[in-house]
């Protein structure tokens, strides 16, 4: 998980390994690899180069959730990118990284951003 307040401008060329920026509604900025973000159907559509969305042009997505929720969402996307093709035995449980306090908020965010039918 990388959390920084990065300043450099986003590269226009897109590749699997470049970074995309997620900004929470309370101003926290998260940088994640494009291929990690692609695990979210909604983010994938937002960043789709063929679309005319501002998100795709700037590689930046505004996410109307609190920072703690966006952080956990990024954490899950990284977890998914890392383990989704590895055997079950070697996959650690993600459950223990979830705090009950944010379960309800995270559920709503997950419902919107995960969108498994799209990914």
């Amino acid at each position: 998980m990388v959390e920084e307040h990065a300043e450099g401008n986003a590269a226009p060329a897109t590749s699997e390994n470049d970074w995309v920026r997620l900004i929470s509604n309370d101003g926290y900025t998260f940088l994640i690899r494009r291929k990690v973000a692609m695990n979210s159907g909604t983010l994938k559509n937002m960043l789709n180069e063929e679309s005319n969305f501002a998100e795709a042009a700037t590689n930046t997505c505004m996410i109307s959730e609190r920072g703690i929720i966006v952080e956990k969402l990024c954490e899950y996307l990284s977890y998914k990118a890392l383990y989704q093709n590895s055997p079950q035995k070697e996959t650690p449980e993600f459950q223990e990284r979830l705090q009950p306090e944010i379960a309800l908020d995270l559920l709503m965010a997950a419902d919107y951003y995960e969108d498994p039918t799209e990914s």
């Binding site: 899950y76 993600f94 459950q95 009950p100 379960a103 309800l104 559920l107 709503m108 997950a110 419902d111």
Partner: peptide
């Protein structure tokens, strides 16, 4: 692969008896 939605729901189910743990429900 477990979806984040299902993970959250599992967690809610697991701590359903401890409503306090789920934080302030009023705002959702």
């Amino acid at each position: 692969f477990p979806s984040l939605v299902s993970l959250c729901i599992d967690l809610i189910g697991a701590c359903i008896d401890d409503v306090e743990a789920l934080g302030d429900i009023g705002n959702v």
